[in-house]
């Protein structure tokens, strides 16, 4: 017995496919609108916050140029550079360098993530606008 799923009666797309594609594009657009609304908050006091495995490691103002080395216990590292109000990773010990190739970030909620090193840099708007502004 030979069994086959009929591949779409010869045509590559059905009406249902087009509906699905349109729906997904609409979702992407809505999600984009949501994200840009969220990130429109003023960034005067913006800070780059460094997290390792979810724990906060440091905060650096985007208004002050600086270079920080973020090191892990096992010798891995990421180098964070803040220049002209933007944060970027200029060097990293991870093998894939996704974080290094990532474009510089500056808007509320944007993040740079290094998956192998479990490191993330997030832009936050400073202490006064944080929803869960923890103090230490």
């Amino acid at each position: 017995m030979v069994k086959f799923a009929p591949p779409a009666d010869g045509r590559p797309m059905k009406k249902n496919d087009l509906i699905l594609i349109a729906a997904l594009l609409a979702v992407a657009l809505l999600a984009y609108a949501g994200v840009s609304l969220y990130s429109k908050v003023s960034t005067n006091k913006a800070e780059a916050v460094v997290y390792q495995q979810g724990k906060e490691q440091g905060r650096y103002r985007l208004s002050e140029n600086t270079v920080v080395e973020i090191s892990l216990e096992n010798g891995d590292y990421n180098i964070l550079q803040i220049r002209e109000g933007q944060a970027e990773i200029t060097e990293a010990s991870c093998p894939d360098k996704t974080c290094v190739r990532h474009r510089p970030i500056s808007r509320q909620g944007e993040s740079l993530v290094c998956l192998p090193n479990q490191m993330a840099v997030e832009i936050e708007n400073g202490a006064d606008s944080g929803i869960d502004g923890a103090t230490d």
């Binding site: 997904l24 992407a28 999600a31 984009y32 979810g54 944007e110 997030e122």
Partner: peptide, 22 residues
């Protein structure tokens, strides 16, 4: 990635990744 890195802000990539996935 959100679970491992514990960073919810990765959702920022969701719109562009839904688009690119489509």
């Amino acid at each position: 990635a959100i679970i491992v890195v514990e960073t919810v802000s990765l959702l920022y990539y969701l719109p562009i990744l839904i688009l690119s996935g489509t």
